[in-house]
Computed example of a mutant assay.
Amino acid sequence: MSRIHPTAIVEPGAQIDDTVEIGPYAIVGAHVTIGARTTVGSHSVIEGHTTLGEDNHIGHFASIGGRPQDMKYKGEPTKLAIGNRNTIREFTTIHTGTVQDTGTTTLGDDNWIMAYVHVGHDCQIGNNVILSSNAQMAGHVLIGDHAIVGGMSGVHQFVRIGAHSMLGGASALVQDVPPFVIAAGNKAEPHGINVEGLRRRGFSADAISALRSAYRLLYKNGLSLEEAKVQLRELASAGGDGDEAVREFVDFVESSQRGIIR
């Protein structure tokens, strides 16, 4: 029995695994590839040069692979690449990239994308990320693994959200959030280390303690950013269990282009 509903439209050229299920009135474009055991909800549109891996679930009325909302876009064949085991819920919009960046918007594996989320052009979303309902990512946003973005939050273009960080609901984020940090507010400000999330993911007590020390150096000791960077580098070479995490923290801070939340 066919897994494609008779009212769905799959354009010639689309590469659809035999195990894919496509619901009523869904539309799949000619340049789309969909991997095994993926389900596409009713009325959803998957278009553009879009690739979905295996075991993804696309909710009803989602719009995947649409043209970037960028006035410089002139119809170039840019791409959207989505990995495996992602849940993308109702009315989510995810756009392809632009030639002004890498040309590809990416979404990794095992992400949980709730209803009405927008992922703009050229965003790079890692693995095991949670984007809560109505979270809005402007173009060129980078989000690290295991990060959480709260519902109704807006993220400015070119902002980075570090791994294992958490942005609270209804926040306005205009600068980078370092990894492992909790941020919230309009405009978003730092509110400590994401201790509970780190414990759940198996970080040791020593690693969490080292990250707390790194946070105090950056935010609580009255140091300038350059002074804090020097002391953070020293902390990252202390020879303890938290060295790798602290190095990730300070590498992120040192590579920030928009500046970090302060």
Score class of each variant (00 low, 15 high):
Phe61Leu: 13
Val141Pro: 03
Gly259Pro: 02
Arg216Asp: 12
Leu80His: 04
Val10Trp: 00
Ser209Phe: 12
Tyr116Thr: 11
Ala210Glu: 12
Val181Pro: 06
Leu142Thr: 15
Gly126Lys: 02
Thr96Ser: 13
Val246Glu: 05
Ile130Asn: 11
Ala236Arg: 03
Ala26Asp: 04
His140Cys: 09
Ser204Val: 05
His191Tyr: 15
Asn127Met: 08
Asn84His: 15
Asp101Ile: 08
His140Lys: 08
Lys220Tyr: 04
Pro24His: 07
Thr33Lys: 13
Asp110Arg: 08
Asn128His: 15
Asp101Phe: 10
Tyr215His: 14
Met152Trp: 11
Pro6Tyr: 11
Leu217Ser: 01
His95Phe: 11
His191Arg: 15
Ala81Ser: 15
Arg160Phe: 08
Ser255Asn: 15
Gly222Ser: 09
Thr7Phe: 05
Gly168Ser: 09
Val20Asp: 00
Arg37Ala: 07
Ala183Leu: 08
Gln124Leu: 09
Ala147Phe: 01
Gly259Phe: 01
Ala14Arg: 01
Asp241Asn: 10
Gly48Leu: 08
Phe203Ser: 12
Ile22Val: 11
Val155Arg: 08
Met152Cys: 13
Gly150Lys: 03
Ser165Trp: 05
Leu131Gly: 07
Leu223Asn: 12
Leu80Gln: 04
Phe91His: 15
Gln231Leu: 15
Gln157Cys: 09
Val149Phe: 03
Asp122Gly: 03
Ala184Cys: 07
Gln69Phe: 01
Gln15Thr: 13
Val28Gly: 03
Gly59Pro: 02
Gly240Ala: 09
Asp70Arg: 00
Ala36Leu: 02
Asn134Lys: 13
Gly144Thr: 08
Ala62Phe: 00
Ser255Pro: 11
Asn128Tyr: 14
Arg89Cys: 04
Phe249Arg: 08
Ile130Leu: 14
Val181Gly: 06
Ile148Pro: 10
His146Thr: 04
Pro190Trp: 08
Val250Thr: 11
Val159Thr: 14
Ser255Val: 11
Ala115His: 10
Arg199Met: 10
Ala188Trp: 06
Leu173Ser: 04
Phe61Ser: 14
Gly83Asn: 11
Ser42Thr: 12
Lys220Met: 14
Asp206Phe: 10
Pro68Val: 07
Gly239Trp: 07
Thr96Arg: 15
Trp112Leu: 15
Gly29Val: 00
Thr104Ile: 12
Thr87Lys: 13
Ile16Tyr: 07
Val117Thr: 06
Ile34Ser: 01
Asp17Glu: 11
Ala172Gly: 15
Leu211Lys: 08
Val129Lys: 05
